[in-house]
């Protein structure tokens, strides 16, 4: 079975099963990964599911789109590979994906 991995700010690893067609935020919430809030429920309207995609994966995952960017742009902690995980739909090709979690969601 394919998995995705979240790495917390202090280095803790959380592996969850990859669910095809579901957003990465939803997978994190369903598996109780700490550090992903998802306050707006997946509307790219709160910025509380911020993740930073590991370098090797960014081309496959793609960079943030304009709507996501409106929320990310206000975040002082954002990095070039920052994404809102509610806007990342999972597919089998993303098996093994690794993302890092920021220290706080804003």
């Amino acid at each position: 079975m394919s998995v995705v991995t979240f790495i917390s700010h202090d280095g803790e690893k959380y592996e969850t099963p990859l669910e095809e067609g579901v957003s990465l935020m939803q997978v994190a919430v369903d598996n109780m990964v700490p550090g992903i809030d998802g306050d707006c429920g997946g509307e790219a309207a709160c910025g509380t599911c911020h993740v930073v995609v590991e370098d090797g994966w960014i081309d496959q995952v793609g960079r943030s789109g304009p709507v996501e960017e409106e929320m990310l742009a206000m975040n002082p902690e954002r990095e070039p590979n920052s994404r809102l995980s509610c806007q990342m739909r999972l597919s089998d090709s993303l098996g093994g994906l690794v993302v890092r979690l920021p220290e706080f969601q804003l």
Binding site: C46, E70, F104
Partner: peptide
């Protein structure tokens, strides 16, 4: 509970929420 709307959503979302 976290789905509450008191902080607003979108670009004007409360900046002092945390």
């Amino acid at each position: 509970a976290r789905n509450h709307i008191s902080f607003g959503f979108g670009v004007h979302r409360c900046m002092g929420n945390r």
